[in-house]
């Protein structure tokens, strides 16, 4: 029966890890603008100018 406890703890800690990642991404503003980046990635730099980013 001990094995189920270990499994639960592992799965729970992985889930909490993902929650923490979501929390961090939300806080750092990754969802502030959901449209512009999708367009930005399609732009091409014609002369291979290193875009400062």
């Amino acid at each position: 029966m001990g094995i189920i406890v270990i499994l639960i703890l592992i799965s729970l800690s992985i889930a909490i890890l993902f929650l923490a990642i979501f929390y961090w991404s939300m806080k750092s503003g990754q969802y502030d603008d959901t449209y512009t980046p999708s367009v930005r990635m399609l732009f091409e730099d014609k002369k291979k100018e290193a875009k400062d980013k």
Partner: peptide, 15 residues
């Protein structure tokens, strides 16, 4: 920045 080199970077928030 191509129009005016003194502009370092510009970023749009479309919404």
């Amino acid at each position: 920045h191509k129009l005016n080199p003194a502009i370092l970077k510009s970023q749009v928030n479309f919404a």
